[in-house]
Design a binder for these strands. Sequence first.
RNA 1: GCUUGAGUGGUGAAAUUGGCAAACACGCUAGACUUAGGAUCUAGUGCCGAAAGGUUUAAGGGUUCGAGUCCCUUCUCAAGCACCA
Length: 855
Amino acid sequence: MIKTAEYDFKAIEAHWQAFWAEHKTFHAEIDESKKKYWILDMFPYPSGAGLHVGHIEGYTATDILGRYKKAQGFNVLHPMGWDAFGLPAEQHAIATGLHPSINTKKNIDNFRQQMHRIGLGIDWEREINTTDPEYFRWTQWIFLQLFKHGLAYVDQKPVWWCPQLGTVLANEEVVDGKSERGNYPVERKPLRQWVLKITAYGDKLLKGIDSLDWPEATKRQQKQWIGRSEGGLVSFEVKPDITLEVFTTRPDTIFGVSFIAIAPEHGLIDSIVSVEQKHLVEDYRKQVAAKSDLERTDLAKNKTGVFTGSYAVHPFTGERIPIWISDYVLMHHGTGAVMGVPAHDERDFEFAQTYHLPIKQVITLSSNETLPAVGEGVLVNSGKFSGLATLDARKAILSELEHLKVGKTTVQYKLHDWLFSRQRYWGEPFPIVWVEEKDYQYLLACDHSPFKEFLPKTPIAYTENGKSLFAVPLTSKHLPLTLPEVSSYKPTMGSTTPLQNADSSWLNVKMNCSTGEILPADGFVEEGWIAGVRETNTMPQWAGSCWYYLRYLSPHFSNNFVDDKALHYWETPDMYIGGAEHAVLHLLYARFWHQFLFDLGLLPTSEPFKKLFHPGIILGPDGNKMSKSLGNVINPNSVIDEYGADALRLYEMFLGPLEASKPWSLQNVEGVYRFLKKVWREFVDLEGEIAKKMLGSCDSAEFQRLLHETILKVTEAIENLRFNTAISQLMICLNGIQKEPQISKNSAKVFLQLLAPFAPHIAEELWERLGEKASITEAAWPNFDASKCVRSQLKVVVQVNGKVRDEIYVSANAEPSEIIAAAKKASKVVAYLSKGTLVKEIYVPKKLVNFVVIL
RNA sequence: GCUUGAGUGGUGAAAUUGGCAAACACGCUAGACUUAGGAUCUAGUGCCGAAAGGUUUAAGGGUUCGAGUCCCUUCUCAAGCACCA
């Protein structure tokens, strides 16, 4: 207790924050006697800027929910951790030469301290950190499981390379073909990359979405991202030994094909282009290659293309169909070739118009429709398929094509495999060593080698300078594979990853196939040992966040990534709150890993996040997104200093609906601060003692009704995450308290309990001053008693022709006929009734009477 | 361009299944208490009108006894997707 008559929020808040920490108030253990409630926040990246107002919005929301559920008797788990790998720490390291872990630790300490200062009820015993080797050993372990099961492979993929900066950049760091930092040109450079086969889970990821209690927009976004489309592959013969395969979702339009278009990168171009067209084709391909992705995908531009000089044969009509090259066809979708049906596809239509290609209508048009007609209809000019409805025709034509062995029903996904490696220092090292083929063969021949623990059925290999290298996975005993010290965190011009700057004793190793021992290579490899080079890419930041929620369940468990006992009790989060910007990144990746671990039998559920909620973005006071360049970033620390943490929490929750994006406006902090001061004044007298007013033995009936209405409304509002309306109801209740000469101590307690999730510090303080020994967090949530809310007198509104004209007060148990009779006598209504003819009476129980009168 | 949301006072916003629009706050106006007020309290505050009253949820239309809420058209804003064959 703080001995003061003033609302000294600084002293009060510091006191109760220390109390909660000391008593481990929010520490959760498995307790089979209680129902569990696991609340998950998207854990933050601990940036140097510290906690921003958006973090506080989400974390306050989960804190309110957690404190409320605890009062409801749930065993609440509300953990927190740090998604601490990432680029800013690395850039800081490059600039200062200090190891990124130093700055990371500093930032984490700051974040933790700030969370402490806003009074979050977090179980700090379970804090995790993705950069902690004891954490990322399991990230590496899960990667090895993926590797073992054939879901991790290597591929040559183009990445953004900036010669001036000497580094590879992420897509987000490239703006209009220039580096975001320094504005230097960047180029596409193919590099060997690790890729996770997320497409193998395309169907499962898609199907699982329907079972999720997520915002519809987010579900839609994931579905769209996965982009499943059913259709068929159709082979067109070009030459006796060459066929061109196209993918189409509209096989029913096949009689309308008037050209075939293939992507400029298509592999068959060289073998089909005619001698006369060769020059034009080459020029076109060069032109396209020089275009940026932005220019190529600009929808506003006209379609361009060039004829190859070759023709394909229509599988049904035998017609010769010209083959064109055009950059509106994308190599990475389907087969990189499409059948052009101008009459029934907008893009093909545009292309055909530009190059004067025939437009053959093969589907009837609905009235007032013009070409291109992309809707459904009935087939015409389609040989024996004419007369079929398009939906039926799709099946019929595909099965005929299959019968002719020139087609196949198939499913395409927009989803691509996940590029999983980064040319960075500050990430999880891959637990992989590359060896030559003969050494790999040697390992395979070695019985019971520990290195076979994660060895895949099909070897993962790539070829460099004519030499094939094979991936050998480390064993679980070698984990964690920690980051080596490097002389520089910056990649040199010659190499592409900072880890290539590591000492040779880390980079070059020899492995004992039978014992599993790994030592620095010394140039001399004895019998039983094989030599190799470590993988020098690191994993992307998403890796650690793919499974972090599971680690909270048993953060110090060393035998497995999660303790089955804890998993059995806590299962998956009951509520996940975090930003919508992760709709298709983190939320998709994490589902992939979770489903994979589920398929291995390691998890009891197939989906990680049953219920998801996105808080809206808090904008700057000018209505723009907060950003350094606009200078509209709000520092929450100054608000805490001036008004206190309770005021900041209330303010952010009172700002508007949680899911809405809303501008910050400091003026309104005054409103909630006044509310808190008013609470204080009602409870504490001028001498600093508890106000006599709050210690009565009974309440007025009117106040009892208000109090129970408040219990109901606050409870429902919290359940529905509508904290702004909960707070307004608390304000109404306080205004009611203010008008009462005295209220019962019990009611005073109830009010504090309802306030406690929102403004926990002041609630604890006043609770203690009321004479309570235990923390308010131990008190059971107040019960709503509907009988306290019944009124003996009801107000009924009287309308004439839908307009309110009067109101009457009637006994709560009056009959409808009595009420209607009373309504007819209402002074303002009489005039209308006498002027016209009453044709209808409507009575809405306990609410209103409406008379329909013809005047 | 497509998809999905959303548009309510000077401001942030409330409003069960269609049933008193603007709760709760901010701001503003007047008053009280004060040496003082950026403290506190009281009253008022959508718009027009002196009042009676009329009128009001982006605009227009419709359904209904009754529409912020349902349907149609248009406009504006936001988010996502963006040649995915």
